[in-house]
């Protein structure tokens, strides 16, 4: 996708929707949200609630935590903390994406929608594809991409909700496995530079060590430490 011409904002939005349709994440997320719809059904939520939660939260792990919290009678405070911990990844993801897609003319409120649509799927695809578009069209592209990924998940939520009682137990396990499996290969695909590869490997290795050692905020501490070590190695190699 080379920027040999400048599409209109609508054109860039449509390119985003088409990129979503071509993304492998469409299949992955369709499966994931069939599982989510079935889970919402089994835990006694309405279909409307299931759909509204997808639009508002738009982060797979957080959504699973919220619905299971209700089922298990976890306190609201504990559930909110668990959701918040899983959402920490969104901060550096949004902070890494927005400088690539904004221009001097971009207003704060223009960035609210792409920030809300930022999830692993959208983040991975926009980091890869947005640089191929002219800077002033990247926000529209990201909005098209994010909404193009969200629309099929809403259909999948309905399908899962309807089919819930007919889905075998192994299917439920398989769709839950889609999230870690697709995160692994898509983040690996985007990790071309040494700093990203190192951050990925160190994050995989360090976080479980902190979790096993019962360190509070293992995800946050493991992530910051792994990312910082990877960055330090990158600086040493660049500087030497």
């Amino acid at each position: 996708m080379s920027a040999v011409y400048t599409p209109s904002s609508t054109g860039a939005f449509v390119i985003g929707v088409k990129s979503a349709a071509k993304s492998v994440f469409i299949y992955v997320m369709f499966g994931t949200f069939i599982g989510y719809g079935a889970l919402c059904h089994d835990l006694g939520f309405s279909l409307t609630w299931a759909l509204v939660s997808t639009v508002l939260i738009w982060a797979g792990p957080a959504q699973v935590i919220v619905v299971t919290a209700l089922g298990s009678g976890l306190s609201a405070g504990e559930a909110a903390i668990a959701v918040s911990l899983s959402g920490i990844r969104l901060l550096p993801m949004v902070a890494a994406l927005l400088p690539l897609i904004r221009t001097k003319a971009t207003r704060f409120w223009h960035l609210l929608l792409p920030a809300h649509l930022t999830a692993v799927s959208m983040w991975v695809e926009s980091l890869r594809m947005a640089p191929g578009l002219p800077p002033e069209r990247r926000v529209a592209f990201c909005n098209g991409l994010g909404l193009g990924l969200m629309a099929p998940t809403l259909v999948a939520t309905v399908v899962g909700f309807m089919l819930a009682q007919r889905l075998p137990a192994l299917f439920a396990a398989a769709v839950l496995f889609l999230t870690p499996m697709s995160f692994t290969v898509s983040v690996a695909r985007n990790s071309r530079e040494l700093v990203d590869k190192l951050a990925f490997i160190l994050g995989l290795a360090l976080t479980p060590v902190f979790a096993l050692a019962k360190v509070d905020l293992a995800l946050l501490i493991g992530g910051v430490l792994a990312g910082t070590i990877a960055f330090a190695v990158h600086r040493l190699r660049e500087g030497a």
């Binding site: 990844r89 983040v187 995989l204 992530g223 792994a226």
Partner: peptide, 13 residues
């Protein structure tokens, strides 16, 4: 970006 990647890896784990 490195921290984002590492946190994601932690979530995978």
């Amino acid at each position: 970006r490195a921290v984002a990647t590492a946190v994601l890896a932690g979530i995978i784990a």
